[in-house]
Design a protein around this nucleic acid. Sequence first.
RNA 1: GUGAAUGUAGCUCAGCUGGCUAGAGCACCAGAUUGUGGCUCUGGGGGUCGUGGGUUCGAGUCCCAUCAUUCACCCCA
Length: 418
Amino acid sequence: MLTTAPRGTRDILPEEAAKWQYVEEVIRDCCRLYGYGEIRPPLFEHTELFQRSVGEATDIVEKEMYTFIDRGGRSITLRPEATASTVRAYLEHNLHAGPQPVKLYYMGPMFRYDRPQAGRYRQFSQFGVEAIGAQDPSVDAEVITLVLDLCTRLGLKDLVVELNSIGCPKCRQEYRQALLEYLSEHKNKLCKTCLSRIERNPLRVLDCKEEGCRALTAAAPQMLEYLCSECAEHFKTLQQCLHAVGAKYELNPALVRGLDYYTKTVFEVTWSGLGAQTAICGGGRYDGLVQECGGPPTPGVGFAMGLDRLLIALEQMGISIPTVNKPTVYVAALTNADNKDAFALLTILRRAGIAADKDYRQASLRAQLKAANRSGAKWTVIVGGEEKKRGAVVIRDMETGEQTEVPQDQLVSILKSS
RNA sequence: GUGAAUGUAGCUCAGCUGGCUAGAGCACCAGAUUGUGGCUCUGGGGGUCGUGGGUUCGAGUCCCAUCAUUCACCCCA
């Protein structure tokens, strides 16, 4: 226990962390181009915030939250997602008073008490974007396009954008009724989990993977046929926007999302290489959420992307990620007596902006060169011997093995110019 | 929360129906080469066999529990 990270958590070691840094950089640049500013909400919130926003009947709230009572008797929950926090911050800081929409992004750990699997952790990282205060469909198109551009820049292939509209509370209620009637007539053909879904959330039956259920739902009434004129118009314009920028997507009438706050647009970016987990990114519009959290009626749209899964996909697609954590120069001491001079020279190089490292074992020159080789350094600088008496050091090119003697006071400028 | 498989060195794994001091490859360290890396050769260090209990003369091997990982379900990122 003492030497094991808690279940569903893991350490990201330097080699892998470099990949994360690269992905995070690309993400930040995309957000900059699209005009989204970073928000860093707290990692925990009052439990009620998630109960209200995510929804009491969702799996997240029912069984996945890390909730505890703090020393002041407050019920606190580690955030299972960050849309709720973003909306809370929007209200707390009166961001509705400024120009709309307010466009924010966040990146960081989320916590859900789930059973861990590949691509699913109890502490996982999400990048997400929220545009709050605009109901224009072009904003929906913007966030989807942002995801697509990001994936393109990272080199991800074979991703599918699935798109649907689940309407507003009014038309969804009508559809729900129609679907319930249809499903009730064919109860005998449904699997047993779907029978329980009928009670809790009939829309979920639509994305059941059981063959019998799929056959049944293929002929079921479709949400899109029940959209009210406003929702239908919104969905149509969104698709026109996507066409206008050449964004590819697939309509999936069965796409239903697990959080209560979604309205109109819902979408997912999926990839089949993640086993049972296919979603890399999920999002949609949440026009009722701000009001639900105690604010004025305010529309919003956004998505969250699973960074752990994104990294897995990059890895599996064999996409190499540029990493730069190598010293340019390795400083070797000819003998142990030269060690302090080597350390002084090392520091001079670093202060001059040259990434440099040395051996800390008092090892033989041979062992130091071995270490230099392994470090990936371009050059090794050797300190000591006759050269030292002349105020010089030896530069060894680690690729060719070529060595030259240079005066120590010219070392920095020589290294910088070559 | 449900079902199944797996757990032996830093990594990948071998270890037959229980039987000597638990092995290999890679990695690591040293030497061959006392002022020079990558290749080669020689040698070396490193394991409470996930953990705890039980059966047995004897357990890495069998049984139970527990923890962890993986796969599927549920759900999602």
